[in-house]
Simulated scan of single mutants.
Amino acid sequence: MLVLGIETSCDETSLALVSDDGPLLEKTALQEEVHSLFGGVVPELASREHLRLIGPLCEALFSQAGRAPRDLDAVAVARGPGLLGSLLVGLGLAKGLCLATGAPLVGVNHLHAHLLAAGIGRTIPYPALGLLVSGGHTQIWRMTSDFDFTLLGRTLDDAAGEAFDKTAKMLNLPYPGGRYIDALGRGVEPDHRLFPRPHLADPGLDFSFSGLKTAVAEHVRGNPGLRLARMPGPGEDFDPALASPGTRLACASLNWAVADTLRIKLFRAIQAFGPFSSLIVAGGVAANSRIRDMAAAVAERMGLALVLPPLALCSDNGTMIAHMGLKLARAGLGHDLGLDAIPRGKKIPWDYRVLPLRESRVKDPPG
Score class of each variant (00 low, 15 high):
26 E>T: 14
287 A>L: 08
210 S>M: 04
14 S>F: 10
234 P>I: 09
204 G>H: 08
102 G>K: 08
64 Q>S: 07
186 R>K: 12
70 R>S: 15
122 R>P: 01
206 D>G: 05
71 D>Y: 10
168 A>T: 07
279 L>S: 06
12 E>S: 00
122 R>Y: 15
1 M>K: 12
25 L>H: 08
74 A>N: 09
130 G>Y: 12
52 R>Y: 07
128 A>H: 13
295 A>D: 02
186 R>L: 00
24 L>M: 13
39 G>N: 09
195 F>H: 02
183 A>N: 04
160 A>C: 01
118 A>M: 03
209 F>N: 07
361 R>C: 07
350 W>N: 07
207 F>S: 05
207 F>H: 02
352 Y>Q: 05
58 C>A: 15
142 R>H: 07
26 E>I: 12
169 K>E: 13
358 R>M: 11
104 P>L: 02
42 V>H: 07
150 T>Q: 14
16 A>L: 13
28 T>E: 15
78 A>E: 15
167 T>W: 11
186 R>T: 05
48 R>L: 00
273 F>K: 05
300 E>L: 09
350 W>C: 13
237 D>C: 10
72 L>G: 00
339 L>V: 12
293 D>T: 10
177 G>P: 01
128 A>G: 04
139 Q>G: 06
176 P>F: 07
114 H>C: 08
56 P>R: 11
256 W>P: 00
35 H>K: 00
294 M>F: 05
358 R>L: 08
24 L>E: 14
133 V>T: 09
154 R>V: 14
336 D>H: 05
199 H>N: 01
343 P>I: 14
173 L>Y: 09
196 P>T: 07
101 T>K: 09
306 L>N: 10
242 L>K: 13
11 D>V: 13
54 I>D: 04
274 G>I: 06
151 L>P: 02
156 L>T: 14
357 L>Q: 03
170 M>F: 14
145 S>Y: 11
291 I>Q: 09
165 D>C: 06
280 I>V: 15
355 L>K: 12
261 T>V: 09
248 R>L: 06
57 L>N: 05
273 F>D: 11
41 V>G: 03
